[in-house]
Design a binder for these strands. Structure first.
Lengths: 155, 155
DNA sequence: TATTGTTATACTCTATAACTATA
DNA sequence: TATAGTTATAGAGTATAACAATA
Protein backbone atom coordinates (compact mmCIF):
# COMPACT_ATOMS: atom_id res chain seq x y z
CA UNK A 1 0.00 0.00 0.00
CA UNK A 2 1.53 3.33 -1.06
CA UNK A 3 2.44 5.88 1.57
CA UNK A 4 1.88 9.38 0.15
CA UNK A 5 4.25 10.90 2.72
CA UNK A 6 7.30 8.94 1.56
CA UNK A 7 6.53 7.18 -1.71
CA UNK A 8 7.09 9.02 -4.96
CA UNK A 9 3.76 9.74 -6.64
CA UNK A 10 2.56 7.41 -9.36
CA UNK A 11 3.73 8.70 -12.70
CA UNK A 12 1.26 9.40 -15.45
CA UNK A 13 2.26 10.06 -19.03
CA UNK A 14 2.65 13.82 -19.17
CA UNK A 15 0.15 15.70 -21.29
CA UNK A 16 1.49 17.67 -24.22
CA UNK A 17 1.49 21.17 -22.84
CA UNK A 18 2.34 22.73 -19.56
CA UNK A 19 -0.21 24.65 -17.51
CA UNK A 20 1.02 28.24 -17.37
CA UNK A 21 -2.37 29.66 -16.42
CA UNK A 22 -1.10 31.49 -13.35
CA UNK A 23 1.69 33.16 -15.30
CA UNK A 24 0.20 34.14 -18.63
CA UNK A 25 -1.87 36.88 -16.99
CA UNK A 26 1.41 38.66 -16.31
CA UNK A 27 2.46 41.11 -18.98
CA UNK A 28 6.03 40.92 -17.68
CA UNK A 29 6.20 37.13 -17.99
CA UNK A 30 4.64 37.17 -21.46
CA UNK A 31 6.94 39.94 -22.69
CA UNK A 32 9.99 38.00 -21.56
CA UNK A 33 8.84 34.72 -23.09
CA UNK A 34 7.98 36.39 -26.40
CA UNK A 35 11.32 38.21 -26.38
CA UNK A 36 13.20 34.95 -25.75
CA UNK A 37 11.30 33.32 -28.60
CA UNK A 38 12.18 36.05 -31.07
CA UNK A 39 15.67 37.23 -30.14
CA UNK A 40 17.86 34.19 -30.95
CA UNK A 41 17.17 34.60 -34.66
CA UNK A 42 17.83 38.34 -34.52
CA UNK A 43 21.08 37.68 -32.64
CA UNK A 44 22.16 35.08 -35.19
CA UNK A 45 21.50 37.35 -38.17
CA UNK A 46 23.12 40.43 -36.63
CA UNK A 47 26.19 38.34 -35.75
CA UNK A 48 26.94 38.19 -39.46
CA UNK A 49 27.64 41.93 -39.22
CA UNK A 50 29.64 41.44 -35.98
CA UNK A 51 26.82 43.16 -34.09
CA UNK A 52 24.91 42.21 -30.98
CA UNK A 53 21.34 43.43 -30.57
CA UNK A 54 22.27 46.29 -28.25
CA UNK A 55 24.88 47.54 -30.70
CA UNK A 56 22.35 47.55 -33.50
CA UNK A 57 20.00 49.51 -31.27
CA UNK A 58 22.72 52.07 -30.53
CA UNK A 59 23.55 52.48 -34.21
CA UNK A 60 19.91 52.96 -35.14
CA UNK A 61 19.22 55.48 -32.39
CA UNK A 62 22.31 57.56 -33.16
CA UNK A 63 21.40 57.46 -36.84
CA UNK A 64 17.86 58.66 -36.18
CA UNK A 65 18.89 61.18 -33.52
CA UNK A 66 21.82 63.35 -34.58
CA UNK A 67 23.48 65.17 -31.68
CA UNK A 68 22.14 62.72 -29.09
CA UNK A 69 24.35 62.45 -26.02
CA UNK A 70 25.15 59.45 -23.82
CA UNK A 71 22.74 60.35 -21.07
CA UNK A 72 19.73 60.41 -23.35
CA UNK A 73 20.84 57.34 -25.25
CA UNK A 74 21.36 55.39 -22.04
CA UNK A 75 17.98 56.41 -20.66
CA UNK A 76 16.26 55.36 -23.86
CA UNK A 77 17.72 51.87 -24.01
CA UNK A 78 17.96 51.47 -20.22
CA UNK A 79 21.72 51.00 -20.05
CA UNK A 80 23.53 52.57 -17.09
CA UNK A 81 26.21 55.23 -17.69
CA UNK A 82 29.17 52.98 -16.77
CA UNK A 83 27.96 50.15 -18.97
CA UNK A 84 27.17 52.50 -21.84
CA UNK A 85 30.64 54.06 -21.61
CA UNK A 86 32.37 50.71 -22.10
CA UNK A 87 29.94 49.66 -24.82
CA UNK A 88 30.63 52.89 -26.74
CA UNK A 89 34.38 52.48 -26.17
CA UNK A 90 34.18 49.20 -28.03
CA UNK A 91 32.01 50.58 -30.83
CA UNK A 92 34.37 53.52 -31.21
CA UNK A 93 37.43 51.30 -31.44
CA UNK A 94 35.53 49.20 -33.99
CA UNK A 95 35.22 52.37 -36.05
CA UNK A 96 31.42 52.53 -35.90
CA UNK A 97 30.91 55.75 -33.93
CA UNK A 98 32.57 59.03 -33.06
CA UNK A 99 32.39 60.94 -29.80
CA UNK A 100 32.88 64.67 -29.61
CA UNK A 101 32.58 66.90 -26.59
CA UNK A 102 29.66 69.31 -26.87
CA UNK A 103 31.24 72.78 -27.27
CA UNK A 104 28.29 74.34 -25.41
CA UNK A 105 28.72 71.96 -22.46
CA UNK A 106 31.97 70.11 -22.48
CA UNK A 107 30.76 67.54 -19.98
CA UNK A 108 28.54 65.81 -22.53
CA UNK A 109 29.56 63.73 -25.51
CA UNK A 110 27.86 64.18 -28.85
CA UNK A 111 27.52 60.86 -30.64
CA UNK A 112 27.68 60.32 -34.37
CA UNK A 113 28.06 57.45 -36.80
CA UNK A 114 31.19 57.11 -38.89
CA UNK A 115 30.69 56.29 -42.58
CA UNK A 116 31.33 52.64 -41.66
CA UNK A 117 28.76 52.98 -38.86
CA UNK A 118 26.20 54.41 -41.28
CA UNK A 119 26.77 51.59 -43.74
CA UNK A 120 26.61 48.97 -40.98
CA UNK A 121 23.44 50.56 -39.61
CA UNK A 122 21.77 50.44 -43.01
CA UNK A 123 22.63 46.76 -43.44
CA UNK A 124 21.61 45.97 -39.88
CA UNK A 125 18.22 47.61 -40.23
CA UNK A 126 17.53 45.40 -43.24
CA UNK A 127 18.79 42.29 -41.49
CA UNK A 128 16.90 43.02 -38.28
CA UNK A 129 13.63 43.72 -40.08
CA UNK A 130 13.80 40.32 -41.77
CA UNK A 131 14.96 38.52 -38.62
CA UNK A 132 12.27 39.90 -36.33
CA UNK A 133 9.73 37.32 -37.37
CA UNK A 134 6.48 36.32 -35.66
CA UNK A 135 5.02 33.72 -38.01
CA UNK A 136 2.00 33.07 -35.81
CA UNK A 137 0.75 36.64 -36.12
CA UNK A 138 -1.05 38.32 -38.98
CA UNK A 139 0.25 41.72 -40.09
CA UNK A 140 -2.66 43.39 -38.34
CA UNK A 141 -1.99 41.51 -35.11
CA UNK A 142 1.67 42.40 -35.28
CA UNK A 143 0.87 46.08 -35.64
CA UNK A 144 -1.62 45.86 -32.83
CA UNK A 145 0.97 44.14 -30.65
CA UNK A 146 3.71 46.70 -31.17
CA UNK A 147 1.18 49.49 -30.64
CA UNK A 148 0.24 48.07 -27.23
CA UNK A 149 3.85 47.40 -26.23
CA UNK A 150 4.83 50.97 -27.09
CA UNK A 151 1.98 52.14 -24.89
CA UNK A 152 3.55 50.19 -22.02
CA UNK A 153 7.09 51.56 -22.30
CA UNK A 154 5.73 54.90 -23.49
CA UNK A 155 7.46 56.84 -26.35
CA UNK B 1 33.75 79.55 -41.33
CA UNK B 2 32.89 76.16 -39.94
CA UNK B 3 34.50 73.08 -41.40
CA UNK B 4 32.04 70.15 -41.25
CA UNK B 5 34.87 67.62 -41.45
CA UNK B 6 36.53 68.69 -38.22
CA UNK B 7 34.27 71.07 -36.33
CA UNK B 8 31.70 69.65 -33.93
CA UNK B 9 28.18 70.23 -35.27
CA UNK B 10 26.23 73.22 -33.99
CA UNK B 11 24.19 72.14 -31.00
CA UNK B 12 20.48 72.65 -30.93
CA UNK B 13 18.31 72.27 -27.88
CA UNK B 14 17.23 68.63 -27.94
CA UNK B 15 13.56 67.96 -28.50
CA UNK B 16 11.68 66.11 -25.79
CA UNK B 17 11.50 62.61 -27.21
CA UNK B 18 13.86 60.40 -29.07
CA UNK B 19 13.09 59.11 -32.54
CA UNK B 20 12.81 55.33 -32.25
CA UNK B 21 10.91 54.95 -35.51
CA UNK B 22 13.30 52.38 -36.97
CA UNK B 23 13.13 50.21 -33.86
CA UNK B 24 9.52 50.24 -32.76
CA UNK B 25 8.52 48.12 -35.72
CA UNK B 26 10.49 45.29 -34.10
CA UNK B 27 8.44 43.04 -31.84
CA UNK B 28 11.67 41.90 -30.17
CA UNK B 29 12.76 45.43 -29.32
CA UNK B 30 9.32 46.40 -28.04
CA UNK B 31 9.00 43.23 -25.93
CA UNK B 32 12.35 43.92 -24.28
CA UNK B 33 11.57 47.59 -23.61
CA UNK B 34 8.16 46.75 -22.15
CA UNK B 35 9.69 43.98 -20.05
CA UNK B 36 12.36 46.34 -18.70
CA UNK B 37 9.65 48.87 -17.85
CA UNK B 38 7.57 46.35 -15.88
CA UNK B 39 10.06 44.02 -14.22
CA UNK B 40 11.81 46.27 -11.68
CA UNK B 41 8.61 46.61 -9.68
CA UNK B 42 7.94 42.88 -9.82
CA UNK B 43 11.51 42.20 -8.71
CA UNK B 44 11.18 44.63 -5.83
CA UNK B 45 7.93 43.13 -4.56
CA UNK B 46 9.07 39.52 -4.90
CA UNK B 47 12.27 40.36 -3.03
CA UNK B 48 10.13 40.77 0.09
CA UNK B 49 9.56 37.00 -0.12
CA UNK B 50 13.28 36.39 -0.85
CA UNK B 51 12.33 35.43 -4.41
CA UNK B 52 13.64 36.50 -7.77
CA UNK B 53 11.31 36.45 -10.77
CA UNK B 54 12.65 33.15 -12.11
CA UNK B 55 12.13 31.47 -8.74
CA UNK B 56 8.54 32.66 -8.62
CA UNK B 57 8.05 31.26 -12.10
CA UNK B 58 9.48 27.90 -11.05
CA UNK B 59 7.23 27.74 -7.98
CA UNK B 60 4.14 28.59 -9.99
CA UNK B 61 4.87 26.06 -12.74
CA UNK B 62 5.59 23.23 -10.32
CA UNK B 63 2.44 24.12 -8.42
CA UNK B 64 0.31 24.04 -11.56
CA UNK B 65 2.07 20.98 -13.03
CA UNK B 66 2.47 18.16 -10.53
CA UNK B 67 5.00 15.53 -11.63
CA UNK B 68 6.76 17.91 -13.98
CA UNK B 69 10.42 17.04 -14.50
CA UNK B 70 13.44 19.29 -15.00
CA UNK B 71 13.62 18.83 -18.75
CA UNK B 72 10.08 20.05 -19.34
CA UNK B 73 10.40 22.83 -16.78
CA UNK B 74 13.62 24.06 -18.33
CA UNK B 75 12.18 24.00 -21.84
CA UNK B 76 9.15 25.97 -20.70
CA UNK B 77 11.05 28.80 -19.06
CA UNK B 78 14.03 28.58 -21.43
CA UNK B 79 16.64 27.79 -18.79
CA UNK B 80 19.41 25.36 -19.77
CA UNK B 81 19.80 22.09 -17.85
CA UNK B 82 23.04 23.11 -16.06
CA UNK B 83 21.61 26.44 -14.98
CA UNK B 84 18.32 24.88 -13.91
CA UNK B 85 20.15 22.28 -11.83
CA UNK B 86 21.96 24.90 -9.77
CA UNK B 87 18.82 27.04 -9.49
CA UNK B 88 16.86 24.07 -8.14
CA UNK B 89 19.75 23.16 -5.80
CA UNK B 90 19.34 26.57 -4.21
CA UNK B 91 15.55 26.34 -4.01
CA UNK B 92 15.82 22.88 -2.50
CA UNK B 93 18.27 24.01 0.15
CA UNK B 94 15.92 26.94 0.85
CA UNK B 95 13.25 24.33 1.60
CA UNK B 96 10.95 25.39 -1.25
CA UNK B 97 11.01 22.28 -3.44
CA UNK B 98 11.62 18.55 -3.33
CA UNK B 99 13.23 16.38 -5.98
CA UNK B 100 12.51 12.67 -6.31
CA UNK B 101 13.75 10.27 -8.93
CA UNK B 102 10.95 9.02 -11.18
CA UNK B 103 10.55 5.31 -10.29
CA UNK B 104 9.51 4.58 -13.89
CA UNK B 105 12.62 6.28 -15.27
CA UNK B 106 15.24 6.95 -12.69
CA UNK B 107 17.10 9.41 -14.92
CA UNK B 108 14.44 12.09 -14.45
CA UNK B 109 13.64 14.09 -11.35
CA UNK B 110 10.05 14.67 -10.32
CA UNK B 111 9.62 18.12 -8.85
CA UNK B 112 7.22 19.07 -6.07
CA UNK B 113 6.65 21.98 -3.72
CA UNK B 114 7.24 21.57 -0.01
CA UNK B 115 4.52 23.00 2.29
CA UNK B 116 6.74 26.08 2.65
CA UNK B 117 7.03 26.21 -1.12
CA UNK B 118 3.26 26.04 -1.52
CA UNK B 119 2.75 28.83 0.97
CA UNK B 120 5.43 30.96 -0.67
CA UNK B 121 3.93 30.29 -4.08
CA UNK B 122 0.50 31.41 -2.91
CA UNK B 123 1.89 34.64 -1.48
CA UNK B 124 4.06 35.23 -4.53
CA UNK B 125 1.17 34.84 -6.94
CA UNK B 126 -0.71 37.53 -5.04
CA UNK B 127 2.31 39.82 -4.91
CA UNK B 128 3.18 39.29 -8.56
CA UNK B 129 -0.36 39.94 -9.76
CA UNK B 130 -0.39 43.29 -7.98
CA UNK B 131 3.15 44.18 -9.05
CA UNK B 132 2.66 43.46 -12.75
CA UNK B 133 1.15 46.83 -13.50
CA UNK B 134 0.66 48.56 -16.83
CA UNK B 135 -1.08 51.80 -15.89
CA UNK B 136 -1.22 53.08 -19.46
CA UNK B 137 -3.38 50.17 -20.63
CA UNK B 138 -7.07 49.57 -20.17
CA UNK B 139 -8.10 46.12 -18.95
CA UNK B 140 -9.24 45.25 -22.45
CA UNK B 141 -5.92 46.34 -23.95
CA UNK B 142 -4.04 44.37 -21.36
CA UNK B 143 -5.95 41.21 -22.18
CA UNK B 144 -5.45 41.82 -25.87
CA UNK B 145 -1.72 42.31 -25.28
CA UNK B 146 -1.19 39.09 -23.34
CA UNK B 147 -3.30 37.22 -25.89
CA UNK B 148 -1.03 38.39 -28.72
CA UNK B 149 2.17 37.72 -26.75
CA UNK B 150 1.04 34.19 -25.96
CA UNK B 151 0.44 33.69 -29.66
CA UNK B 152 4.10 34.61 -30.27
CA UNK B 153 5.66 32.23 -27.75
CA UNK B 154 2.91 29.71 -28.38
CA UNK B 155 1.36 27.73 -25.43
C1' DT C 1 23.73 4.53 -28.16
C1' DA C 2 20.53 8.16 -26.44
C1' DT C 3 18.55 10.68 -22.58
C1' DT C 4 18.30 13.15 -17.95
C1' DG C 5 20.60 15.54 -15.01
C1' DT C 6 25.06 17.25 -12.72
C1' DT C 7 29.60 19.51 -12.14
C1' DA C 8 32.93 22.74 -13.37
C1' DT C 9 34.01 26.71 -15.65
C1' DA C 10 34.12 30.56 -18.71
C1' DC C 11 31.77 34.33 -20.61
C1' DT C 12 28.50 38.12 -20.80
C1' DC C 13 25.56 41.30 -18.64
C1' DT C 14 24.33 44.30 -14.99
C1' DA C 15 24.98 46.99 -10.72
C1' DT C 16 27.73 49.95 -7.44
C1' DA C 17 31.21 53.02 -5.77
C1' DA C 18 34.66 56.23 -6.46
C1' DC C 19 36.59 59.30 -9.53
C1' DT C 20 37.48 63.35 -13.29
C1' DA C 21 35.99 67.33 -15.78
C1' DT C 22 32.96 70.62 -16.38
C1' DA C 23 29.03 73.66 -15.11
C1' DT D 1 27.16 71.90 -5.32
C1' DA D 2 25.31 69.32 -9.30
C1' DT D 3 25.84 67.01 -13.74
C1' DA D 4 27.99 63.98 -17.70
C1' DG D 5 30.87 60.70 -18.24
C1' DT D 6 34.66 57.32 -16.82
C1' DT D 7 37.19 53.62 -14.35
C1' DA D 8 37.37 49.66 -11.59
C1' DT D 9 35.21 45.91 -9.77
C1' DA D 10 31.84 42.79 -8.04
C1' DG D 11 27.79 40.16 -8.79
C1' DA D 12 24.17 37.92 -11.46
C1' DG D 13 22.93 35.61 -15.47
C1' DT D 14 24.01 32.60 -19.41
C1' DA D 15 26.60 29.26 -22.25
C1' DT D 16 29.68 25.14 -23.08
C1' DA D 17 32.06 20.90 -22.29
C1' DA D 18 32.76 16.83 -19.84
C1' DC D 19 30.75 13.63 -16.94
C1' DA D 20 27.52 10.00 -14.26
C1' DA D 21 23.52 7.33 -14.11
C1' DT D 22 19.91 5.23 -16.43
C1' DA D 23 17.31 3.67 -20.43
Amino acid sequence: MPNPKTDPPAVQPQSEHIDQSHLIGSVGYCCLQAYLEIVPNIRKQLAKLQLRPVEYTVLSLINSNPLINQKRLGQTIRVSPPNLATLLDRMQSDGLIDRQRNPNDRRSQILALTPKGQETCRKAENVAAKADITPTLTDAEREQLTRLLIKVFHP
